[in-house]
Simulated scan of single mutants.
Amino acid sequence: MRAIFGIVTLLSCLSVHAEPCEKDAVALAEKGAQFIKTYGKEEMIARINRKDPMFYHGSLYLAMRDLRGITIAHPTTALIGKDFLDVPDADGKAFRHEMVAVARGRGKGWVDYKFRNPETGKVAPKSTYVLRVGDVALEAGIYKH
Rank of each mutant, 00 (worst) to 15 (best):
L85D: 12
I72W: 04
V87E: 13
V87I: 15
A90D: 10
N49Q: 12
K51T: 01
S59T: 14
I70P: 05
A46C: 06
T71Q: 08
I72D: 05
K82I: 15
G81I: 05
L67H: 12
L85I: 11
R65H: 12
I72K: 03
R47S: 09
M54N: 09
H74I: 01
F55R: 01
P88R: 13
M64E: 08
P88K: 14
P53H: 03
G58Y: 00
V87C: 10
L85Q: 13
D89E: 15
I80F: 13
F55H: 01
D66G: 07
D86G: 12
A73G: 07
R47P: 02
L62H: 02
A78D: 14
M64F: 04
L85Y: 08
H57S: 10
I45S: 04
L67N: 10
G69Q: 09
T77L: 06
I45Y: 05
K51N: 01
R65M: 14
A78M: 14
A46E: 10
D66K: 04
T76D: 15
P88E: 13
R65T: 12
T77R: 08
N49Y: 07
Y56C: 00
A78K: 14
I45L: 10
I72P: 03
M54K: 13
D89H: 13
R50I: 08
D52A: 03
D86L: 15
G58P: 00
R50M: 10
G69S: 13
A90W: 07
A73Y: 03
M44Y: 02
Y61I: 00
P53D: 06
P88G: 15
D52S: 05
T77C: 04
I70C: 09
G69N: 09
